[in-house]
Simulated assay, not measured.
Amino acid sequence: MTALRLPILWLAGLLGLAGCSMNQPVSLYQLDSGTPAQPAQSTGMAVLLGPVLIADYLQRETLLQRQPDGSLQAATDGRWAGSLSSDIDQLLLRQVAGHLDSQRVVLAPATQGFTPDVQVLLSITRLDSGKAQPAVLDAQWRLIDRRGKVRENRIVHLQEQHAGTTAAQVQAQGVLLQRLAEQLSVSLKPLANQPSVAAEVPRKAAPAPAKPVEKEKDKIPMALPIRTDMEVFRF
């Protein structure tokens, strides 16, 4: 009986160790939004932030690591705590509102009745890092004024060094997004004092009343004396 129990106990021990290794806790991470100022103006600049588009490879809970050869691998010691896209939206919203000191910064789609001074169309095509690779952010924005005119189109490339740990990488990515929001706010501020659309469109003068069309009257040709060279003789 003892000889039979040893292999069974040994197998159970191996399964237990395997189970422990598979159930190792994984750290969950969120982007650090920093300490943005609390906006005080309820009548500040009206900004519609979005749509904010992010690259397909970022739309997952997996925390990806950039390798020296440029490839991406899933991190084994951590993942995103929820939606990375939502974290990016909220970080940018708080940062831009703080820089502009305005409570009127909203995420797209806007509620009915909200008329923005500027709409920000933002696309983030890269946001990642690696143990030996810096955090990198590639983005592009377009600013649309209240008349629908593109006021600025800018492509941004930012980098941030870090200590190499997963936590340090996530912190560096948050810093990059904070710098993006700061640069975006600098571009937004000059568009705060736009004249209203009604003031820009000159009033058209009322059209002059059309003159009645006079009907051409039938004109009777005047009889003209006929002159001849003939002389009349009377006897």
Rank of each mutant, 00 (worst) to 15 (best):
W80Q: 01
S129H: 02
V213D: 14
P195W: 13
K204E: 10
L49V: 03
A12L: 12
A181W: 00
A132T: 11
I124F: 08
C20Q: 10
L92M: 14
M222A: 12
A132K: 07
A208K: 08
V106L: 07
S27K: 13
P195S: 12
M1A: 10
R151K: 03
M1H: 08
V156S: 04
Q119W: 01
D87N: 12
E160G: 12
A163R: 03
M45V: 05
R60D: 10
L53S: 06
K219I: 07
L127D: 07
V232L: 12
W10Y: 11
E61F: 04
A192R: 13
R147M: 02
N193P: 03
L6C: 12
D56L: 06
Q65R: 10
E182T: 15
P39K: 07
V118C: 00
P225G: 00
L58H: 14
L84M: 09
Q38Y: 12
L188R: 00
W10C: 13
R142Q: 15
A3Q: 09
H99Q: 15
A74W: 10
N23P: 05
L127K: 06
Q159W: 07
V118P: 00
G174C: 00
S85K: 14
Q73I: 05
N153Q: 15
D56G: 07
G148N: 02
G70L: 02
D145L: 07
C20M: 09
R146F: 02
D128G: 02
K217L: 15
Q140I: 02
A74N: 08
L121V: 09
P116G: 04
G148W: 01
G78M: 05
W10V: 13
V105H: 02
V150L: 02
A172F: 07
L11E: 10
V26E: 12
L177G: 00
Q183G: 06
Q30I: 05
L107C: 11
T2P: 11
L53E: 05
T76G: 03
E152P: 03
Q171T: 02
A97D: 03
P25V: 07
V52F: 05
V186K: 15
T62N: 11
Q38N: 11
T228R: 10
I226A: 14
L58K: 13
